[in-house]
Design a protein around this nucleic acid. Sequence first.
RNA 1: GGUCCGGUAGCUCAGCUGGAUAGAGCAUCAGCCUUCUAAGCUGAGGGUCAUUGGUUCGAAUCCAAUCCGGAUCACCA
Length: 606
Amino acid sequence: MQQNTLKMTLAALVKIAAFDALKHLFPDTDISASAITVNQTKPEFTGDYTIVLFPFVKLLRMKPDILGTQVGEHLLATSDLFSEFQIVSGFLNLTVKDSYLNTFLTENFTNSSFGIQHPVDHKVMVEYSSPNTNKPLHFGHLRNIFLGAAVSEILTANGKKVIKANLVNDRGIHICKSMVAWKNYGEGATPASSGIKGDHFVGDYYVKFNEVYKKEIAGLTAAGMDEKTAEKEAPIMLAAQAMLRKWEAGDEATRKLWETMNGWVYEGFDVSYKNLGVSFDHVYHESETYLLGKKIVEDGLNKGILFRKEDGSVWIDLTDDGLDEKLLLRGDGTSVYITQDIGTAQLKYNDYGLDQSVYVIADEQNYHIQVLKLILKKLGEPCADGIFHLSYGMVELPTGKMKSREGTVVDADDMMAEMVNMAREQTEQAGKTEGFTAEELNNLYRTIGMGALKFYLLRVDPKKRMIFDPKESIDLHGYTATFIQYAHARICSILRKENIPVTGTATQLPQLSGNVTLEKAEKDMILHMEQYPDILKDAADSFNPASICNYTFQLAQLFNTFYDVHSISKAESEEKKTLRLMIVIMTASTLRHAMGLLGISLPEKM
RNA sequence: GGUCCGGUAGCUCAGCUGGAUAGAGCAUCAGCCUUCUAAGCUGAGGGUCAUUGGUUCGAAUCCAAUCCGGAUCACCA
């Protein structure tokens, strides 16, 4: 029992206590736990947690003051949590005992698994990144990648078994475009011979293709052809299509070129992924999965769930679900995008026996995923129920959508370099480079730059689209990773001076006597840290890393205020010093843990 | 046209399972470094929570309608 109550957060305990009190005081009234609202007390009132009395005022036909007094007195008498209560017009404000918070702090300040849930039997795959192999990653991909990586970590911290997957789109007309352009204009160049990173190298030929294509269309229309026909008849487009046919027929030379060029891209991606600090447990390739799904479709046809039209194409009727008819196989028997996805969904499920499968995909595919899930359900596939679309808004430029064909993209590698560079400029400008080796400085710039980039993209609710103005760049002040990193570095500086290991979890400090009085800034910090397990759980339930950003920023803010008003090394008493060291040690480790989930590391010096 | 998502301070965003006088950051202005890192802290100004109606003791939050912005409804992927 003791064990259990310690693991619950205050907010949960207050709610239970309130429920028990009401049931005890009014045994004849039917009171539901869901009617109890517990909030944090607004700063302008005395108290820490507030129980809203209005619902019960009505139910019990009592005046708020009388009801609140009865509940409050009962809570003080029966629970060890509260030191006092006040009633302000229908709100019962409870003050949490300092001794409770001191005990919490003593027990958890070196607890490296604070907030982490016990493992549960729940396997979830998170698919993210999922690039095409005809061009490098751009800024929009970064949102996807950081989201997928962060959600994976958050789910893991909540006890789930996570498989991180990447589904690489390594085949199709877009790759053939790069291949044709390289064949025609590459003159045998390679990433090594040109000194260009592989993914950029191949991407350059994709751009080249579109340049030539545009010119050819212009030439044809000038010669009197209408635009639609010209788009179809442009020689370079015909060449790309021929290339795709040869690829599908398994033509050796084509396959070889394809493998070579994809290989270049993978080398480039590997560098980018490494710089981004992300990894995958399983990489699926579309060239291996694109023929899957046909059998499932044929089974569905036999079962009468699907139907065939006169031209031989296979369809599903979703009009009863408010959607349209959807094509699943072309008249010539070849599969379409969704056919592949049906097959891949089943493959993933069979590979791991998944309870859940998260697709991190931009919101432009909301309809597609909705249809996919519905079709799988109608086909009776067991993987259907576990599918969850983590839909996120596109990252746009002030000028509109990023179009790699037109070269109006913010390149991911460029962006990373730019951020690291900004971190360098800021550090130099602030004159904070003393006492670092050149290597330490480079690491610091990376930590700050990449942290700022990740935080910038993760702090916004995923489903909102965001407009990124490269000219305005990204701030390193205010609601940023830098702010949090700085708070951490300050704590580490204090700990160094006290000869306490900054990342050590085995720190020994004297026992607190139990009756240390907490000042506001101290109490605020402990109360906030105490909520961390709930925040982590909410972030997992809502698949939203932004709530972690928010929480972490607030904790850093509380620390900065605390740091400003209270001295740690020169505390008023030894006991106060111990208390503050505990607070600060736990703050640092909570910041590290939370930011670690987002893939952001915190420097010990900056 | 159907469906889905968004609209909160000059800008970028929290808050949305209904609760007290709607919060941060940036920007602007005014203060704070002989004392643990000023990448920080304190304070000020800045709001018709798109609009209208409804439900409720109570609405930024729930419901309906309208307006604005976006996405999508392909034998593309």
